[in-house]
Amino acid sequence: MIAILGLVVGAVVAIVLRPTVPQEMTRYAAMAVVAAIDAGLGGVRSYAEQTFSDRIFVVAFVTNAAAAAGLVWIGDQLSVDLVTAVVVVFGVRIFQNVAAIRRRVFGG
């Protein structure tokens, strides 16, 4: 599919350019990635359910990633570990999305 092609292109660009995230930013970047994975899987799910809207997808992708990184940042300011909150919430959602996609693909 065309999305997988995009994923591969992005990965190749990153491998070629080798950008590095500053150490103090890696926590935020990692949480943003977790949120983005959830948004990506949500997009695939809605596509499979024929309810895909590119506008919602783009907005969900960006806001999820920003909210996750922002939440972790706020948690750091308050010295509360909100990484766990982000990981749990988006982890559960990732599994739900995967399960929904699986049901679509294999039925049942």
Binding site: L5, G6, V8, V9, V13, A14, T20, A29, G43, F57
Partner: peptide, 29 residues
């Protein structure tokens, strides 16, 4: 349906792949 939004989908998928590899490689570094 795919014809409606190939560009944004590809773009965001590329962004996701880029972010994934970048954070993973910098965490390793």
């Amino acid at each position: 349906m795919p014809a409606r939004s190939p560009l944004s989908l590809v773009g965001l998928a590329a962004l996701l792949g880029f972010l994934l590899v970048t954070t993973a490689s910098s965490a390793k570094a």
